[in-house]
Amino acid sequence: MRTHACAGRRCGAGCGRPRCTGRGCRMIGRRGLLGASLAAPLLARSGTARAHAFPDRPIRYVCPFPPGATNDNVSRSMARALAPRLGVAVVVENKAGAGGAVGTRLVAESRPDGHTLLNASAGNLTIAPHLSNVGYDPLRDLAPIASAGEAYSLIAVHPAVPARSMAELVAFARRNPGVLNYGSAGIGSAGHLRGALLADEGGFEAVHVPFPGSAPAVNSVAAGDCHLIIDPIAAPLVRDGRLRALATLGPDRWDAFPDLPTLAELGIGRDWPGSGWFGLFAPAGTPAAVIQRLNRDFNDSLAEPEVAAALRRFGLRPEAITPQELGRRVAADHAAVGAALHRLRIA
């Protein structure tokens, strides 16, 4: 059996049609049909594999805070490191608002294919969901991928504040109830919770002043409009002498400020819930193979000296962990923070 699609007078391909010229004649014999039928499934599978290849287009790397915030700095460092490993552009998008909830919800509602990722911090996953209807469940709607590490923070004040130690700060605040205020990256941010915890443990009243990100918050303290901030973003201003650091908050002393005591050394904050970590997340339902690929490339990036050095400048201690370990950390912090907010009557 032979089929053809020729046209013309004489067929040079030997199809036997008197008007065939052979130009464009497609002759398929039994062997050709058999070969085509065997190849079809392979071609179909090959096309499917290409359609599901990851990544197959640029990746949106969502930072849920404004430019200049610590989250933004971490996002841009990791985006630059990931791009050559993934072979596509990794584009940071700032989607700020509601203490990080706006950008987080955008990612939670995105297509779960690994091409829209979130650079989350503890605040928008373990604090903000307890304070308002953020539109997402951090334990159900997001898939943990990797951690950029634990974050240190500085407890810093404007030089006009009459305190050169935590003891003097607490004494000043007690003598002047309701006078001391503290800026943060917004309601539900880590700085918000820590300021409330400090006031509670110190036995004084303090006014929370929320900003749409840590950059405007620290600038307000530097300008003297606010008195206090608890955030790693204060580090450059402390080095420049525009702010005075009283202590650090973290798992141990911050090597960038080795002479500053930790709050724990001063007997403060030992039982504070939640840690200051930053992590990479995807929408729930993202394929396991994609999660593993991103985890591997992210952790490999943390091992690069330039990346690790950049993260340390932003106040992080780089830490490579598994998606499962990050998921357990989020769940534990979410529960502990919820209990603390209820005790403080914030939630």
Rank of each mutant, 00 (worst) to 15 (best):
S75D: 09
G100I: 06
L180I: 02
V161G: 00
R140E: 14
G100D: 07
Y136R: 05
A196Q: 04
P67M: 13
S184L: 08
P66C: 14
R140S: 14
A98T: 01
A163D: 01
P162M: 03
S184Y: 00
M166V: 04
A146P: 02
G87F: 10
D72H: 15
F65G: 10
G99P: 08
A190I: 07
N181M: 06
V88C: 03
V62Y: 05
V88R: 06
P177G: 05
L193P: 01
T70F: 11
V102F: 14
T126W: 09
A163S: 00
P159M: 08
V88N: 07
A167G: 02
A120S: 12
F65M: 14
M166F: 00
N133S: 14
N176P: 05
V74L: 15
L198G: 03
Y61R: 08
I127Y: 08
T116F: 09
G149V: 09
L169H: 03
R80V: 04
I187V: 14
A185N: 07
R174A: 01
N124D: 15
G183M: 04
P67H: 12
Y152C: 11
E150W: 05
A69I: 14
V179Q: 04
A190M: 06
L106E: 11
A120D: 05
L86M: 12
E150P: 00
A128Y: 07
L169W: 03
H130N: 13
V170P: 02
A98E: 13
A173W: 03
V90D: 04
D72G: 13
V88T: 05
V107T: 08
C63I: 07
E109S: 10
V62H: 06
A96Y: 12
V92R: 10
P84M: 09
A108L: 12
L86D: 09
D141H: 14
P138S: 11
R140N: 08
P159S: 04
V88Q: 13
A89I: 02
R76V: 15
G178Y: 08
M166N: 00
A143W: 02
V74R: 10
N119T: 15
I145P: 02
G178M: 11
L117K: 05
R85H: 13
G135S: 14
V179R: 11
S153M: 10
N133I: 00
S75N: 05
L169Y: 03
R140W: 13
V179F: 05
Y136D: 04
S165M: 04
A196S: 10
R174Q: 06
A69N: 14
S153E: 11
I59Y: 07
S110A: 15
S75V: 02
I187N: 08
G68A: 11
R105K: 15
L125W: 06
L118M: 09
V134M: 12
R164N: 09
G68Y: 10
V170S: 00
A101W: 09
